[in-house]
Amino acid sequence: MIEINNLNFGYSKHKPLFKNMSMRLSNGHIYGLLGKNGAGKSTLLKNLAGLVYPQGGQLNVMGFNPSKRQPALLSQICFIPEEFYLPPVKIDSYLKANAPFYPNFDHEYLATLLKEFDIPASNKLIDMSYGQKKKFIIAFGLATQARLVIMDEPTNGLDIPSKAQFRKIMASALTDERCIIISTHQVRDLDNLIDTVIMLDENDVALKASVEEITTKLAFKRVKEIDESIFYAEPSLSGYNAVMPNYHHEESKLDMELLFNAILAEKTKFKPLFN
């Protein structure tokens, strides 16, 4: 679905953001893109969508080079940016103007999604709150039936019920033909939705592994004391939350936030496990 080969990118010459980054993403997955502020999450997504151009290396998205911005590719990408704009028109006229560009646009599905999100279809886009607008563009984007769904911080600005609706919708949106990439800070909103974790750090991919692979190799546990087998631990109410190699084939629940902090702190310990 997506092939990234030796991607080089930076907004200025002295501060490269990606150095020779390579990665493959396939359909049928929800990828969670994690990274510190400024690690380049949004930038990577923009590279994939062709909104910025790589300074070196190749990108292949469904057989296209995104930099060419060919309509055939654009109609297969649903890109939900963190900050978005909707014109001050009625939902109806927005659809009339934009939906015909997507050959597989599914109006019925859109109606279902809007209902699920509690957005009346007669609404004017300008009268809606930020959260409602966000839900609208997510619904519109999914109804385009695009095969590549890219979302930058989609749960920002959603209230608690909306987050649950969002998770339900994303769970139903994943099909075998689709590839969904979600960047997020709020790991807790989405951790059960993500099946593969991509972590960016220091100009490259620090980790790319499925939840299954991670929990096969690592155990996430509450422990009373820290010993040498533990890679990383954070104090909690009753001892420590710890990450350690999974010697005893335990089936623990992946704690994404803990993993995130662990990899930032102890990169070298994890490297040999995932390769």
């Binding site: 929800i30 998770r167 339900k168 769970a171 139903s172 994943l174 059960n192 993500i194 939840v211 299954e212």
Partner: peptide, 17 residues
């Protein structure tokens, strides 16, 4: 798989597993 994934708000691949 899809119905249960939606109900549980989890990735369908997890339910598949």
């Amino acid at each position: 798989v899809r119905e249960l994934a939606v109900a549980m708000e989890v990735n369908p691949n997890t339910v598949m597993r």
